[in-house]
Every structure is written in structure tokens, then in C-alpha cells.
């Protein structure tokens, strides 16, 4: 055990620093689901995504479109799967905290 401890002294640290340079992180995997990207004009207003959303994060609007409330979203990926015209996709943006709630709503 002692040799193991001594060897570790000279190794590179395993810890990955979170923000060494702004915008530089460890690589984000391909299947990662971050803040939703929504194509407002393509949406046909079928409201299937409203029905499937487990967190109630999608609400329909009077113009037969939808709003996404990122503060409730659990990033399950069901809405993108169910959408018949595929207007929902996910960005790699995970730093979505904000002190202003309206910043967390995806409208257009």
C-alpha cells in the first residue's frame, strides 16, 4: 500500500478542473441532452409533446405552438422522440442556471 501511495504522489491528478478557461470543459458525450432547441415555424401544434412530458415542462399556447420551461425539464428526451415533424432537438448547453425565470423559457 505504501508504494502505491508514493507512486500516486508523482502522477497527474485525476480531478478535472471545471472552468480552467471560459468555455472549455471535458468533452460532452454525443447523447447528452441539454437546453432544448425548438423550431417555432415548423411546429404543427399537435400537442403530443405536451401529453408525453413527464415533468409538465411543455405548455401549449393559444397560437397552437408550445413553450418549453427549462426550469422544470428533466431532459428525458421523450418530446424529441415523439414529435412527428422533429422540430425539437437538444443543445450541449448545460449551464442553464439563471436568477431570472423568463431566461429559462424556450419560446422561439
Amino acid at each position: 500500500m505504501i508504494t502505491g501511495v508514493l507512486k500516486s504522489l508523482f502522477k497527474k491528478p485525476v480531478t478535472v478542473k471545471y472552468y480552467t478557461k471560459p468555455g472549455v470543459h471535458t468533452p460532452i458525450p454525443d447523447r447528452f441532452r441539454g437546453r432544448i432547441i425548438y423550431d417555432y415555424d415548423g411546429c404543427i401544434g399537435c400537442a403530443l409533446c405536451v401529453k408525453i412530458c413527464p415533468a409538465g415542462a411543455i405548455l401549449a399556447t393559444p397560437e397552437r405552438k408550445v413553450n418549453f420551461y427549462m426550469d422544470r425539464c428533466i431532459f428525458c428526451g421523450e418530446c424529441a422522440e415523439i414529435c412527428p415533424v422533429k422540430v425539437i432537438s437538444y443543445s450541449k448547453d448545460f449551464e442553464i442556471t439563471s436568477s431570472d425565470r423568463s431566461q429559462l423559457t424556450v419560446r422561439k
Binding site: 458525450p29 454525443d30 447523447r31 447528452f32 441532452r33 428533466i74 431532459f75 428525458c76 428526451g77
Partner: peptide, 12 residues
């Protein structure tokens, strides 16, 4: 697990 499913804790 994150590479397989996109999430670390709740894999969905």
C-alpha cells in the same frame, strides 16, 4: 453510463 444514455444518474 453517460456515454451510453446521455445522463450520469437517471439514465432514462
Amino acid at each position: 453510463l453517460e456515454k451510453i444514455s446521455g445522463k450520469r444518474v437517471h439514465h432514462d
